[in-house]
Design a protein around this nucleic acid. Structure first.
Length: 422
RNA sequence: GGAGGACUCGCCUAGUGGCCGAUGGCGUCGGUCUUGAAAACCGAUAUAGGGAAACCUAUCGUGGGUUCGAAUCCCACGUCCUCCGCCA
């Protein structure tokens, strides 16, 4: 949710942000009009209410014989107050409704355009030249006894999989490596709930344009989170955080669930796009004026992790039209996937400024009083995709896979993953 | 799932229809005293909204209701605690 006052004072900023995103700029006018109506309604209600309050006091103080007359007027007034109250609530609700449909205001130098209009910030590492025909991760997963997509489909359907043997071990190793890296950077490790109430889902902005991609348990009105960003952001819902504790950084490890509606036919092979996967996510609460710097730090930690697993990747500045509604800016890291001859998104970091915090009613307190706080998130390690990147980039001709140096200690000293006998 | 009990301003607490935005203590902040500190004493100490301002309005777990008037009465829900049953 963007700030009403900011919108009132900078309608043009908001309008151009909406246009850059390819979203409706006329919402700005709607909010301003609704806000006018709201303020009028509030003034009316409050005037009546004040009158009623004084009158009510008079009733209590009045002599017995004067009461009936006073009660007469009071009763009539009570009716009016009720009406004005309803009108006020409706007007406020109206403003909120429109406000919730407005996306966050994008940062000034974000590239404008759609999904394809991202700007490449840098390339790190060079795609390897293979002296043999590289196998894809599905095949490697089979050879290593690490990934079983067939049985995943048998048991749960398309886009499900089992990680087995060395595949499961690889997940544990990567999670431990991620958590230990995060811990060194001051993140508090967290294992959050993955079923959340609508308020948490809505507060983080996932019930808007992203709604079709979340699993909903209708009977119990729970949502399955698509990322631990949700329970991490909502962790401090309705709280005021003291400034001297900021930035507060959390590293959440959880399963993530995504319906992948509208992606039929995309990435149907393998575990690039699945309904359920595990992820270590960084989340940060910090003062708004530090958000941009914090965003850069999150990006750096993502790069550190990718550097540690020794895969080539590039960093892109995601274009306005491809940002989530909460994000003012987003950087993606895309790892090189040899068999696709392409860079594919493996991590992503967003600066949500005060947008999420305002919806979740999270504020900070310093000597100048309470004010909104900024929230940021970034993927440290999305398991399946990182596993894909490792298997495909470090494979050897015989189907074995070299373990990146940094990961070796987390795999009990194992330096190579070797094919299991058939 | 069943039976009870609780929920008040950072914490603890007073408050059963108008004098209550709300008592007192603790904590915190400022001051007096002191070389400094402690103690003692004095004072301050919620949030949001409307208004140019004076000031006004809302908030006692949440939402409804009764009433001229609700922290206080009624209903529903939520959370926590205790006991019973079931269970990884």
């Amino acid at each position: 949710m963007i700030d009403l006052k900011f919108l009132r004072e900078n309608p043009d900023r908001v309008r151009s942000s909406q246009i850059a995103r390819g979203e409706d700029p006329t919402l700005v006018e709607s909010v301003i009009a609704a806000d006018e109506a709201r303020r009028t309604a509030i003034a009316e209600f409050e005037a009546l209410r004040a009158e009623q309050n004084t009158l009510s006091k008079a009733v209590g103080a009045a002599a017995k014989e004067d009461r009936p007359a006073l009660l007469e007027t009071s009763k009539a007034l009570a009716e009016k107050v009720k009406g004005a109250d309803t009108a006020k609530s409706a007007a406020e609700e109206r403003v909120r409704e429109i406000l919730l449909n407005l996306s966050n205001v994008v940062e000034e130098d974000v590239p404008v355009g759609g999904e394809a209009d991202f700007k490449i910030i840098e390339h790190v590492g060079t795609p390897r030249e293979f002296s043999f025909e590289p196998k894809d991760h599905v095949e490697l997963g089979k050879i290593l006894g690490a990934i079983d997509t067939e049985r995943g489909a048998k048991v749960s359907g398309a886009r499900f999989y089992y990680l087995t043997g060395v595949g499961a071990l690889l997940e544990f190793a990567l999670v431990n490596m991620a958590i230990s890296q995060a811990g060194a950077a001051g993140f508090i490790p967290v294992i959050p709930p993955v079923l959340v109430k609508p308020s948490a889902m809505e507060g983080t902005g996932f019930l808007g344009q992203a709604a079709e991609n979340v699993f909903h348990l209708e009977k119990d009105d729970f949502y399955l989170v698509g990322t631990s960003e949700v329970p991490l952001a909502a962790y401090h819902m309705d709280e005021i955080l003291p400034a001297n504790k900021l930035p507060l950084r959390y590293a959440g490890y959880s399963s993530c669930f995504r319906r992948e509606a509208g992606s039929y036919g995309k990435d149907t092979r393998g575990i690039i796009r699945v309904h359920q996967f595990d992820k270590v996510e960084m989340f940060s609460f910090c003062p708004p004026e530090e958000a941009e710097a914090e965003h850069r730090r999150l990006l750096q930690w993502e790069k550190d992790f990718l550097n540690a697993i020794e895969v080539p990747y590039r960093v892109i500045d995601v274009a306005t039209g491809d940002l989530g509604s909460s994000a003012a800016r987003k950087f993606d890291c895309e790892a090189w996937i040899p068999t696709q001859n392409a860079y594919r998104e493996v991590t992503s970091t967003s600066n949500c400024t005060e947008f999420q915090a305002r919806r979740l009613n999270i504020r900070m307190k310093d000597e100048n009083g309470t004010r909104p706080i900024a929230t940021l998130n970034g993927t440290l390690c999305a398991l399946p995709r990182i596993i894909v990147a490792i298997l495909e980039n470090h494979q050897q001709e015989d189907g074995s896979v070299r373990v990146p140096k940094a990961l070796v200690p987390f795999l009990g000293g194992r330096e190579v993953l070797t094919p299991v006998s058939a």
